[in-house]
């Protein structure tokens, strides 16, 4: 998950960096930590596990819909996009560098 991506909305870069560093909404991390570990105050190990799981699923979803180098994110599962802590992510375009 160390591939570099650019996520753009309306010609503005809303994220540039590795897939593994795409920000996830804090409440999503906590919810998933509660589901996985029963822990509403996750330590770094629980946090990083939860974030990795979310991004693994995100990458699987991207790969299954990607045709070429770019993909409009509204082609993938909406719930998955809503987990990302990026404004306008739903209509953004993701491109592998």
């Amino acid at each position: 998950m160390n591939q570099e991506v650019i996520i753009m909305y309306d010609n503005q870069i809303i994220y540039k960096g590795k897939i593994e560093n795409i920000p996830i909404k804090e409440h999503v991390i906590i919810e998933q930590s509660i589901i996985q570990f029963g822990d509403d105050d996750p330590c770094i190990i629980h946090r990083s596990y939860v974030i990795k799981k979310i991004l693994i699923e995100f990458l699987k979803e991207i790969n299954s819909h990607m045709n070429g180098k770019k993909l409009i994110l509204n082609h993938i599962n909406k719930e998955m996009i809503e987990q990302l802590d990026l404004e306008h992510a739903y209509n953004a375009v993701i491109e592998f560098c």
Binding site: N2, E20, K52, K53, I56
Partner: peptide
């Protein structure tokens, strides 16, 4: 290789 991701998979 990132072993944490590998272990999850």
């Amino acid at each position: 290789i990132n072993s944490k991701t590998l272990a999850i998979l």
